[in-house]
Write a protein that binds this DNA or RNA. Structure first.
Lengths: 260, 260
DNA sequence: AAACAAAGTTTCAAATAATGAAACTAGTTT
DNA sequence: AAACTAGTTTCATTATTTGAAACTTTGTTT
């Protein structure tokens, strides 16, 4: 899986960037090399170029590479220019205050859930879901609700990118059982995460739609089983859905020609 | 200014990415083209590749390009793997609580100040709305203190990248006057921003050093002239410097072989 | 200290991919 | 319908990437 769909040199270089980032820690050149199918000098030059460009940073003491600072600047720009994140911000604040639980805003990137923004619960367990963090789509509330509302072509493609790893006993481990849930999700208008990704963590998620039907993201309220049961979370459905609808409407008008 | 130091195709493509991001809003292909020295098909293909790769996102309704979601994921990874940001986080929390003013953590990227983490005066969140922001180095507290503690080679290069635009009446508008201040900064151990970037905003900044002398970033306390005068800010010097030293020590030990 | 091993870097001819002038298509305006 | 503009494709030329091999540097073992 990944982006390597033959975008020439650029695609290869970005593949290397992802590869380095995927280690989750600073890595040496040789470590990357052993896991790469690129020949040594080729990989070497890509890493050199990326380092020159500040897309990677190099620690001379430890001789390791890690994703570079330039990415922060670019991501900041991406966040601000996103048609969803800045629009949704005040709604997240309001919802977070109202329900007193963790609130997450997510989109799909390359088949994975990508958290765009979050609010912590006041009582403060840390969901670790910071902006930029990724999670699987098939076993999270936001992921499942986005999948359920996608058009068939995109969903088919996204489903092929799911790993179906059993994180907990409740995790879907095949396309079949997951697809069966999609009808229920569309009927209810929300998806639940019943400890499918992490034991003790549950959530309720609603889709964010523009132009009435196209799903552009999802909003969720997440909590622990110690604080709420699934039925209790269901009590947030009206508030959550209303907020998601408002964000969708706002995002839509923001995109309309009138504003610019 | 920029990174275009002949890193072949990769460098050019990343130049295009920066270019698109620099608009600060979604742009059409033709808008980029008029400001680019690349021929039409070349620019077109770069934008296509970057879009394929999710480094740019394309809005089909408005036919515009903006920095893409993939950057958020990569930046999250960059932040977490940075040798400074995760280490400094608890110290920022503590300092912010103690002084009750805005606290900033910054590094230098391509001659510019890049904010790695922030704490608001009241109580806020550190999403990418804040981290990833850039500011000029020559007229900010964090920028000046980093420049003052850089080695000569790096400082010379960084100074060439400064625009010396007069944001306010107090802004340094030439290398000469700025360089004169560096001695004072090194003597005092902190730099002040005396409304040099924005009227009404002042700050005190201390360098973060590893291995005793190499500057890897800066920490600042920022406030408004309505709340404090420069002398009042000076009262934070001891606390600020102590925190900066602690962060430096921690970052250093984090990098040392013992931890891994 | 010498020999060895491993990691990192450079070379250079061959292979491949990028290039850009021009042509073409789709959508708008006159 | 013609003229114009923005976006897209073509294709021969050109420049860049490629990778086996050689080389250098760094660290480890004898």
């Amino acid at each position: 899986m990944g982006y390597e769909t033959g975008d020439g040199t650029v695609g290869k270089a970005l593949g290397v960037l992802d590869h380095v980032a995927s280690f989750g820690r600073p890595v040496r050149f040789s470590e990357v090399l052993t896991q790469s199918d690129l020949p040594k000098p080729t990989l070497y030059r890509f890493i050199q170029s990326l380092t020159n460009q500040n897309m990677l940073s190099y620690d001379p003491d430890r001789q390791t590479y890690a994703p570079g600072l330039r990415l922060l600047r670019l991501a900041h720009s991406a966040w601000e220019q996103s048609s969803l994140a800045p629009v949704a911000r005040p709604f997240l604040d309001a919802l977070s205050n109202e329900v007193g639980e963790a609130v997450h805003l997510a989109q799909i990137d390359n088949g994975q859930v990508l958290f765009i923004d979050k609010r912590k619960a006041q009582a403060g367990f840390d969901t670790l879901a910071q902006a930029g963090q990724v999670a699987p789509a098939y076993c999270t509330g936001v992921g499942k609700v986005i999948l359920a509302y996608m058009d068939d072509a995109r969903r088919t493609r996204a489903l092929q990118q799911q790993a179906f790893l059993a994180y907990t006993a409740a995790t879907h481990t095949s396309v079949a059982t997951l697809e069966r849930e999609f009808d229920a999700i569309r009927a209810e208008g929300v998806a639940f995460d019943r400890e499918e990704h992490e034991a003790g963590i549950i959530s309720i998620a609603a889709p964010i739609l523009t132009h009435g039907d196209r799903v552009i993201g999802a909003l969720s309220i997440a909590t622990t089983t110690q604080r709420h049961c699934i039925n209790g979370l269901g009590g947030f459905r009206a508030t959550l859905s209303e907020t998601a609808v408002k964000i969708g409407a706002e995002a839509r008008s923001w995109q309309s020609p009138t504003t610019v």
